[in-house]
Design a protein around this nucleic acid. Structure first.
Lengths: 329, 329
DNA sequence: CTGTTAGCGCTTTCAA
DNA sequence: TTGAAAGCGCTAACAG
């Protein structure tokens, strides 16, 4: 079977390729009659334009790249859904690049992408080290939007959540529940998230005149498990805020070990985007980010950039929600 | 700044474009000296080949497409990780297409993809309806591998889990724990999974001479919540197998409502790939599929197909694991 | 309103 | 060992 391309359509229709091309693009300079004939045959033969050819010609790829640390994570999964939904509307495709928190990979990806592999990039940085490489690459013309983990030293459109405010509220929530010794488990790295969240906690406990107990956890599960265990044993908090879900999970286990009951002995609030986890465990109150909306927002901004439309606000902040579950114990 | 392409490199090096191209591809007919010079400059100028151009020429896109129902789902997330890891090794890119369980979209994607948009397709079908459309498209030359939800009526390489065996074991696990009235919640659609899982349950209870209680749940959350509630109320099982996680979550809530304690009153085993959910809730025993390996395996087969290497086994089955958590109640 | 043609960046055949 | 040139499928400037 012969390949169905424009040339083939043209031959069949006894027209020139340019007429066919224009008809397919619904150009104003083509008669309705011709358009109809072309469209009909195209549909009949199930013609699909070759994206390589049109991309080469137009210098558009109809692809956006999504560079993220991992995908096995509810937040990113939902964000992908959001991004894909707006991309699909615009006939764009989403290509996924996983850094696995590895900065080398991130650099390699961005380099690749900066040379026409995609019309735009959405990324959440692998943030445990310095990120000067991004600044270097920023001279680049490929539109770029950050989301979630936004590098603090770079001026680029971004979408994130109200980390400070929601942590402040979460901490006050614990205080309202009667907690007096509130601990804060946080991962601090080079991205703004950890810092902002900790600050929210700090300001809230300070406002209410409570003592500060923070633990800056390392990123390795073995390490932070030990650290958290020791922390809980020493501090004996009656309330706990954790900046990311995995810390809450680890704390949960440490509590089991130490014979502490959640939430009767220790009330826990954690950032989390695992609706199912939260559903399954009514003892965990969560701060949940609207990941889907964040994804949509980031993609929308990116498309504005791609199409040279003005971007009104450079920094979009989307509110997260405090979801409290009634205890069943 | 001028665009760095082969022509530019050639001009700088005072060579022809073909020499540069060959050098970049490490062709045997180029002298070491020339190669070195070319590679050096390419690295220095950070040359990146235009994938559209090479794709157009080579009729290769260096892209594989992943067509799945959703991504906000731990199983698929992990599978993506697996797929991406082997794709990245081979300098391939992964493009994601979400069907949102919508067959129209699935058809549209496959049509698009069948015309050179990707070198291969990995898919998990949106399976609540007939899937004759896939058969129609199968005449197509684009390599295709199914995973997870494999259409039962199509002969194509596939990777899935030992649904029957693991359900059989899961049911026997409940029997060993002393359950006498074991219920089975399942979603039956046009893909093989539900059917196989139910069969595993049926054969296990029959083998042990127990009564059969199955519920074929609908796909809508409102619907199946009601159905499950009624089922639990009527049947009053002391053991429960659920074929997918969401049914376990719903059952969990119904149990709360009905004043049934898990696992003391009802022991539950569910297929689940939410490690965190399982961690947070020690009362749920799970059958967990090695999603990452499944993804890797599917991608590996696809690349064999793409590179015209023989595929030894058409149907790969990967074992899932029964993960029992000790109750803390 | 329609056709002819150049050229996007790359690979590869053919020629030297 | 290297170079010249054709052509992948498509779009758009230019010419009618």
């Amino acid at each position: 079977m012969e390949r169905v391309n424009i040339k083939y359509l043209a031959k069949e229709l006894k027209m020139s390729v340019s007429t066919v091309s224009r008809a397919l693009h619904d150009s104003y300079e083509i008669s309705e009659k011709t358009k109809k004939k072309v469209l009909e045959l195209a549909r009949k033969l199930d013609y699909q334009p070759d994206p390589n050819a049109s991309g080469l010609r137009e210098k558009r790829t109809y692809r956006i790249a999504l560079v993220i640390p991992e995908v096995a994570n509810n937040f990113f999964s939902l964000a992908i859904d959001g991004i894909e939904s707006v991309a699909a509307d615009r006939k764009y495709h989403v290509q996924i690049y996983l850094t696995h928190e590895n900065q080398e990979k991130e650099i390699a990806f961005v380099k690749q992408l900066s040379n026409g592999r995609a019309d735009g990039i959405i990324m959440s940085v692998a943030g445990d080290q310095a990120n000067t490489h991004l600044t270097d690459l920023m001279g680049n013309k490929t539109p770029l939007v950050f989301f979630d983990r936004v590098p603090s030293n770079i001026d680029q459109p971004s979408v994130s959540t109200d980390d400070y405010e929601s942590t402040f509220k979460a901490t006050e929530h614990l205080i309202e529940k009667g907690c007096k010794r509130i601990g804060c488990l946080v991962v601090l790295d080079n991205v703004s998230i950890g810092i902002k969240r900790r600050q929210g906690y700090l300001d809230a406990v300070e406002k209410h005149g409570l003592e500060v107990f923070t633990l800056d956890c390392s990123n390795d599960i073995q390490e932070y498990s030990k650290e958290i265990h020791a922390f809980l044993k020493n501090v004996k908090p009656d309330g706990l805020f954790t900046s990311v879900e995995k810390l809450a999970v680890s704390a949960y286990y440490s509590c089991l070990d130490l014979g502490l009951k959640i939430p009767s002995d220790v009330k826990v609030v954690s950032f989390s985007n695992l609706p199912t986890a939260a559903l399954l465990n009514p003892s965990l109150t969560t701060v949940t980010q609207p990941a889907f909306e964040i994804g949509k927002e980031a993609a929308t901004i990116l498309f504005n950039l791609i199409n040279d439309k003005p971007v009104h606000e450079k920094t979009i902040v989307i509110k997260s929600e405090l979801i409290e579950r009634q205890s069943t114990q």
